[in-house]
Nucleic acid binder design. Structure first.
Lengths: 346, 346
DNA sequence: AGCCACATTTGACACGTTCCAATACTCGCG
DNA sequence: CGCGAGTATTGGAACGTGTCAAATGTGGCT
């Protein structure tokens, strides 16, 4: 309704030049007290609000960083995002959170928009590995940091968790508990997280001297509760003699879906099917049967990624790309035969 | 690393004027085939990427809408956000998702940033009701739509769900099941959602001829799993004779926390304590004891809010503010004594 | 009075786009 | 051959900032 108020209007109203208003805004210490007060008053009176677009245009870069995740509905990623935001806001940056939904097309669209916005940099958990798009983004001047993903080329920074180890931990635990026939549930296999966790599972099998065929792989369309339920149906319909007695799921959403389907079909967890999930989201401990899960330092992942990005931004010359790898930890609960009454809280 | 490439560089490289390149970008149909091709080629060769800041500056408004929610870690809000994004992207708008974390200060900071970005409009689930900040935002020209909240003044559009009815449904159900001593668990009471759901609970009590003192109100610091656990501790420590036999929680996170604490302390749900939650998030059906919950049309809430905003934006003259109210539905599951084996999936 | 140092303020330009009025060119028709 | 009607292209003026060299004012000192 009101005509937009610009720095020029403020200047006119305060009876100073345009440059002075700008100085008040950006380097108040160099302008005389009395002038400063007059300008502040004009700002308040007119309801002046800085125009971020103009600032960005002038500066050449925005004061925003982009964060592209696989699934905002997954608490793992919102926790990670929280870490990013905390770190970013300490440097006065804001975060643009984008959801690729594990879809290549959506991811591409978001990257395009973020580049057009000239964001400081992009933190991304990519849908596919070794993406040329990311390489081109970097070449054109937008730094990219991989989160919960590892840079194969070494051409960018990355922060990840050793998912192979995580898979190994989970399956070793199940083997030690005496399980013979195991299943790995998760997909799509094109996601690095899925592939690595599966590889870790295989590694544990091999080390225990088991045949790889003892590990059945059940693919899901996505890492969601619905995907877990579908897989649960498949498991339930196997003849009991062939049915795995333990399942390691690529994340907690899948594990919860699986658990839910087992409960519905009256297949006891953990007696008939033990389950281990991944991520240890807050809901895991509150599940039908408290879920064993591989815990990742979610917030730290985000914080570190943001920090690496800023390192790269502020020291773009001498910057060496770094690959930070965190270690996962296994949290054993009831779903894999852990203590029935745990006093520990997830 | 490379110098940023602008429309001017493209023009030079294609041997045309700057205005022509702009035309190719915005109204390709009015420029001759051959010229167009030449320009496209130059764009590709130079790796030109539009500068959104400059476009926005010129246009006066950005092509983004802001969404401020109380808690991104709550699946209710991410589902809602999904609805907003779907609707927005159909009109070529992107969404900036902000988390106020139920904190006034964070909310203020986000609003400030969004206004500086000159967003098309702001969808917000406010921390406090009747916020003068929002009124001022509107006056200065940024439309505001309340989501999961109701406009008291009628000065803005709003989309909400009848939370009083929701509370009524939940408590009526519990009363019908024969419970005598009830508890309402949730807070802070300053949140409209909390106050309304509690009011609905009281209404149901009154209608059933119960004394208001039969409804004990347990306040939580926030609507989180942790808050629910704390409240659970309080309930557990009451002498069994005074302890409520049923609890209605202000949302599912609180309910899950409460449930988790009861399980830990070996207090049976629903036998010793029946629980009803609110929102019917995906995890509710997968909980330790499948959670009865009041369902809200989460995605529709978001979609409708986005639609109202666009209505206001594109027809700013003749626009009349609207208050859309959806109806909630009660989903009865095992936590409040519903059927033990439900074939329905949450 | 003249000079200098210092504090404050000014004015103009650049950032990359979009938009519009003005120009150049082409063709058909009288 | 000239004219009108398109069609295709051009040039330049904004949009709101930040920056910086230059201008202005102030006061002290010789």
């Amino acid at each position: 309704m009101n005509a937009p108020v610009s720095i020029k209007d403020v200047a006119a109203h305060a009876g100073v030049s345009l440059g002075t208003v700008s100085n008040v805004l950006n380097r108040p210490e160099i302008v005389a007290q009395s002038t400063r007060d007059r300008v502040y008053e004009a700002i308040k009176m007119l309801g002046f609000v800085r125009n971020e677009s103009a600032r960005q245009l002038r500066a050449g870069r925005s004061r925003t960083i982009g964060l592209v995740v696989l699934d905002v509905a997954n608490p793992f990623f919102t926790d990670m995002a929280r870490g990013v935001e905390d770190e970013a806001s300490m440097s006065g940056l804001s975060v643009m959170l984008c959801n690729s939904d594990e879809q290549d097309g959506r991811e591409a669209r978001h990257l395009e928009l973020l580049e057009q916005h000239r964001v400081q940099g992009i933190l991304i958990t990519p849908v596919r590995e070794a993406d040329e798009r990311l390489a081109r983004l970097q070449e054109r001047g937008t730094p990219v940091v991989l989160v919960d993903s590892r840079s194969a080329s070494g051409h960018q920074c990355s922060v990840s968790v050793d998912d192979v180890l995580g898979g190994d931990l989970a399956v070793s635990h199940l083997l030690k508990a005496g399980h013979e026939r195991l299943a790995f549930v998760g997909g799509p296999a094109s996601l690095r997280q899925v592939a690595d966790r599966c590889e870790g599972a295989s590694r544990a099998m091999a080390r225990a001297g088991r045949s790889p065929t003892d590990l059945q792989v059940l693919a899901t369309a996505a890492l969601t509760v619905a995907g877990g339920r579908t897989a649960g149906g498949q498991i339930a319909e196997m003849p009991p003699a062939e049915r795995p007695t333990a399942a390691f799921c690529a994340n907690d959403l899948v594990a919860l879906g699986l658990l839910q389907e087992m409960t519905r079909r009256k297949i006891s967890v953990p007696d008939e099917l033990a389950i281990v999930g991944y991520d240890d989201i807050e809901f895991a401990g509150a599940a039908a049967v408290p879920l064993s899960s591989v815990r990742q330092p979610r917030q730290d992942l985000g914080r570190m990624a943001a920090r690496l990005l800023m390192e790269e931004t502020y020291d773009s010359d001498g910057h060496q790309h770094r690959q930070v790898v965190f270690q996962p930890e296994l949290e054993v609960r009831q779903s894999s035969g852990g203590p029935v009454d745990s006093d520990r809280l997830g």
